Lab assay of single mutants.
Amino acid sequence: MALNTPQITPTKKITVRAIGEELPRGDYQRCPQCDMLFSLPEINSHQSAYCPRCQAKIRDGRDWSLTRLAAMAFTMLLLMPFAWGEPLLHIWLLGIRIDANVMQGIWQMTKQGDAITGSMVFFCVIGAPLILVTSIAYLWFGNRLGMNLRPVLLMLERLKEWVMLDIYLVGIGVASIKVQDYAHIQAGVGLFSFVALVILTTVTLSHLNVEELWERFYPQRPATRRDEKLRVCLGCHFTGYPDQRGRCPRCHIPLRLRRRHSLQKCWAALLASIVLLLPANLLPISIIYLNGGRQEDTILSGIMSLASSNIAVAGIVFIASILVPFTKVIVMFTLLLSIHFKCQQGLRTRILLLRMVTWIGRWSMLDLFVISLTMSLINRDQILAFTMGPAAFYFGAAVILTILAVEWLDSRLLWDAHESGNARFDD
């Protein structure tokens, strides 16, 4: 018995066209964080690309023209004298008006014999932002004059995390709450300039795509075929072959399989920071003279006294001054041990922890910024005066060393310790 099946006739004509040209192939790229070699397709503007294995951002879609970056830099340069030299806060102490600005706080630190601690604050609040705007201006002028731009481009990517104007702005709020127990506070004209400078700096850093600047100024022929001998440069993120001198053909720094002496430098910085954190938390970090009496505060006791007036601000200072430094030390110690013992479990967790400490590390400088600003506000000789204690130097040095330890660690070593050939990683 035959089955009668109805015929289905399409209502619209289906047209099949042959592909007349070869589909576009992607360029081969190595991930600078996990060293995976993959094919990167062509990316349009405002599109980002991520590593298929570790999800690290390979290409950032946010990109401004150099002219727009230069305009932002010149605007920031105009704001800087007002943000640093004009009063941020006014207080009335014992019937006398006192003005506080950024430069005055750094000068008070240096004047009291601790120039190293003052230079830490100076670099993060004044030096690094000033280098940022002058570097962008150098790129703008240098591109037109045919100057060598490689050193500036190499420095810009590392400079971003040292620009800490946003953290200093939080420190202004913390210092205001600490001082309000002794005097009446009012915002100064410099505060508005400083807030504007923070906003412009944040926007500029978020749109400063150094890798795209490398592509514009020093374009290189990408690798179009897969080759395990391809290496990625950690300076400019170019994937290719080393030249005859073993250097990256684009930025001219040595092109090595792994960062040289990464573990040794990381261990040295980490152990030194552990040693410095002990006096930083045991010795007094601030000293207040009130009517001839002397009151010393460690980091913890200062947080407890701050909690009596504002528990939320005390929580912020606790996280930045105690929780973050010790968390960074514990995480980095764990990561280094996992590399030495070739741990194969929990790779995803370790990668996330490394990215976390990379982002939060700079916030530990908050305590030094609060001390710097408070020193310029309260300084009335023996009637009422505020000065920093010996722990300030140890704390600042420990924070900087932990930042350097994270920067010096080559994250690809975590993958080397893991089993080879993993296309995915999980716990």
Rank of each mutant, 00 (worst) to 15 (best):
T5P: 14
T5Q: 11
I8E: 14
T9W: 09
P10A: 11
T15W: 12
T15C: 11
V16I: 10
V16N: 10
V16F: 11
I19H: 10
G20W: 08
G26Q: 12
D27W: 14
D35S: 10
M36L: 07
S39R: 12
N44K: 15
Q47Y: 15
A49H: 07
A49L: 13
Y50N: 15
P52G: 05
K57D: 05
W64Y: 11
W64C: 14
A70M: 15
F74G: 14
T75F: 03
L79N: 08
M80Q: 06
M80V: 09
G85H: 10
P87K: 13
L88H: 04
H90L: 07
W92T: 05
L93A: 03
I96D: 01
I98C: 04
D99L: 06
M109Q: 04
G113Q: 14
G113D: 12
M120Y: 13
M120K: 01
V121H: 07
F123D: 07
A128E: 02
L130A: 11
I131G: 02
L132Y: 05
V133R: 00
I136Y: 10
L145G: 01
L149D: 01
L149R: 10
R150F: 03
L153R: 00
R158S: 14
K160C: 07
K160T: 07
E161Y: 05
L165W: 05
D166P: 15
D166T: 15
I167N: 01
I167P: 08
I167E: 06
Y168I: 06
V170D: 03
G173R: 01
S176N: 05
K178Y: 01
Y182S: 12
Q186N: 10
V198C: 14
L200Y: 15
T201Q: 07
T204F: 05
T204Y: 04
S206G: 14
N209Q: 03
V210S: 12
W214M: 15
F217D: 03
Y218G: 05
P219H: 12
Q220F: 05
T224Y: 07
T224D: 09
R226S: 15
R226A: 14
R231N: 06
L234A: 09
C236A: 00
H237D: 07
R245A: 05
R245E: 05
G246R: 05
R247P: 05
C248D: 01
C251D: 01
L255R: 08
R259Y: 06
R260A: 03
R260F: 08
L263E: 06
K265V: 01
C266D: 03
L271R: 00
S273I: 06
I274S: 11
I274F: 12
V275P: 03
P279K: 04
L282G: 06
L283H: 04
I285Y: 00
I287G: 02
I288W: 00
Y289N: 02
Y289P: 01
R294F: 02
D297T: 06
I299S: 13
L300R: 02
I303S: 14
I303K: 00
S305L: 06
I311P: 13
V313A: 02
P325N: 05
T327Q: 06
K328L: 00
V331I: 14
V331C: 12
L336Q: 10
H340I: 05
H340Q: 07
F341Q: 13
Q345I: 12
T349V: 14
R350C: 10
L352D: 07
I360Y: 06
I360E: 03
I360N: 02
L366F: 04
L368R: 00
F369P: 00
F369S: 03
S372I: 05
S372W: 09
N379S: 13
I383G: 01
L384K: 01
F386S: 00
Y394V: 01
F395Q: 02
A397G: 10
I400P: 03
V406G: 07
R412L: 00
L413S: 07
L414D: 06
D416I: 11
A417Y: 10
N422P: 12
N422D: 12
D426C: 08
D427F: 14
